[in-house]
């Protein structure tokens, strides 16, 4: 057995940990340490995201990350891409505007369950319906972490939260079913234990044209785990290992998660459909003609160019010389 190298000793004043982090090129190391609690799964998702980008060979200048508000909402502030930390629930419409204004961008939304599915729920289903070309990574820890452990639309029935101190009586959204029904064209779910699978799914989702959605079940050790007496981060990993079941291609109607119940995982949906922009450009080209270009030259301009070219050709080389002889 080979010997482990000794753990380097760092202090917060020491920049060594910034330089030595294997993900340093993807992170704003000058902003470390981050705010997330020990045992939280958000860091795993960020690492998987960075791994996926590394593996995918993307032009990192063309990746934009958008987050909403909350613990996961802080991701945008730590990743070294063009990154935006927006208002609560509005990461998806912000990302929509960003993508449509600059279609060459790969836009990735990383946010939490409260942000994306409660206050931002309407935007989630409409972006899925439009098949807006973006990847949405939802870190689902069943709770509002930043505000202290309140119930969310994904909190399992009967679980305890600070605003349901006698237990949650509401049914939870099954997110893969929700976004599948709304029109998402790539849907996957993993837990934060399954880091390699998350990486692979993020890679696929970013290559997928259209609205791709990845749910990552992730522990909130400080609030959800503690309040429900579910132990620490390691206990959560044990639960995910025991009760996580890979069911690629499962019917999304069957993948809801009960309180500490089985977690169906895998790629549930992967189907082609025109993205919002593809549909717009295709349709307008059929209506207006091949001259149509999004943000491009107008038919009038093209006609003028064409005429200029014809008249230049008619006059021969002299067309290059202006009347002043300059």
């Amino acid at each position: 057995m080979s010997e482990l190298s000794p753990t380097p000793e760092y202090s917060l004043d020491d920049n060594a940990f910034r330089e030595q982090n294997p993900m340093a090129e993807f992170l704003r190391m000058e902003r470390m340490p981050h705010i997330w609690c020990p045992g939280c799964g958000i860091g795993t998702v960020v690492t998987s995201f960075a791994e996926a980008i590394k593996a995918g060979g993307y032009d990192m200048d063309k990746i934009a990350v958008v987050s909403g508000i909350g613990c996961t909402g802080r991701v945008a502030g730590y990743v070294k891409f063009d990154s935006f930390h927006t208002t609560h629930g509005r990461a998806i419409p912000f990302a929509t505007g960003l993508k449509l204004a600059n279609p060459e961008l790969k836009v990735v939304v990383i946010s939490g369950d409260g942000d994306l599915t409660s206050i931002g729920g309407n935007h989630l289903i409409h972006a899925a319906r439009r098949n807006m070309d973006m990847t949405v990574i939802c870190v689902n820890n069943f709770t509002y972490g930043m505000t202290g452990g309140q119930v969310t639309p994904t909190t399992p029935t009967s679980a305890n939260a600070s605003t349901t101190p006698y237990g949650n009586t509401e049914p939870a959204f099954s997110l893969p079913f929700l976004v599948d029904a709304a029109g998402a064209t790539y849907v996957a779910r993993w837990t934060s234990l399954h880091a390699r699978n998350i990486t692979k799914s993020i890679g696929e989702a970013m290559k997928h044209r259209g609205f791709s959605f990845i749910e990552v079940i992730s522990p909130c050790t400080t609030l959800y785990q503690r309040r429900n007496r579910l132990g620490d981060g390691v206990s959560a990993m044990e639960y995910y290992r025991e009760d996580g079941e890979i069911q690629h291609g499962a019917d999304t109607r069957t993948v809801d998660i009960g309180y500490q119940g089985k977690i169906a995982m895998g790629k549930f949906v992967d189907r082609p459909r025109d993205t919002y922009l593809d549909a717009v450009v295709k349709h307008l080209t059929s209506v207006i003609g091949d001259d149509y270009e999004l943000y491009g030259k107008t038919p009038m301009e093209k006609k003028a160019e064409e005429e200029a070219r014809k008249s230049a050709a008619g006059k021969g080389e002299s067309a290059d010389i202006c009347e002043d002889g300059c």
Partner: peptide, 12 residues
């Protein structure tokens, strides 16, 4: 959504 998409589009 409309005002937020506009803010995003400015950064685009």
């Amino acid at each position: 959504a409309s005002i937020t998409a506009n803010v995003g589009a400015v950064w685009g």
